[in-house]
Amino acid sequence: MTPASRPLGGRLKIRLEALGHGIFYLTLRLFGQLGAYLLLLPVIAAYAATSRKIGRKTAPYLSRRFPSAGRPGRWLAMIRNLTSFGQVLVDRAWLGIKDGDLRGEFIGYQQLEELVNRGRGVVLLTAHVGNWQTALARLDSLPTRVHALMRYDQEAAAKHYFDLRDGRRPFEIIDSEGPWGGMIEATAALQRGEVVTIMGDRLVKGSAVTVDLLGDPARIPEAAYFLAGSVGAPVVVMFAAKTGRKSYQLRVWDSWYPRWENREQRAEACRNSGARFAKNLQEYLDEYPHQWYNFYDFWQQ
């Protein structure tokens, strides 16, 4: 659809969004990160007060993560969730525009590096939690090439972040929309001993495993475990978290080798791997309950 052929409401929405972004960028340039954080507060308050849609989008997660919270408690959790997300967006723009100084610690980097140095490739599994784009940006220190299997154009937040950095990306994109879902390139990269990062939470297409997350079954992609097990690479779970106004943490939460002797064992091995990832994700959410950024009904995907 060309811009001119969009309905008036759609065009207006796009212009208002562009205006909103412009105001945030101007605030960032003039008043820095803190100024933009302050601007977030009235915007989020107004959004939360007037938009029913955002309530519907956050409810599937918040009702499971805070099951005993009453209406006010759930509303507060939504505000904290949105504020946390807004701050990550601000940080990303701030890093891109001003090369802002975020202090990061990387727990488990040595373990990750050791696995990379074994030369069997590494499937680095992460999720849409915390400031995960920052995590991807830190991977340039690994002693091998890093690839990200994703629909880059659909990952608007990541695209925005890395495009702001003059297109300097610390990883190469493998387009998951390409033929065979990018799996041939991903397999070849692992065979060369390189790293392939995959978002392990969102199921866009392809085969899935059903896991328990926050007390209910959810479907997550199977491809990462299949890929790792097929080439003999380890799966490494790494999540990022914003830990302060100017600090963040990357942590390797777990690592293992999915293994199977035959096709009969394969499905079970992938299911077990999915369950292990979900357990890691739940532990992360116990620690950082407001840094979940899948704003849709994750349990219906």
Binding site: G181, I184, A186, T187, A188, S207, L227, S230
Partner: peptide
């Protein structure tokens, strides 16, 4: 065959 089979075939 599907994309997961493609992985196996490459391997």
């Amino acid at each position: 065959l599907d994309s997961l089979d493609a992985v196996e075939l490459v391997v």
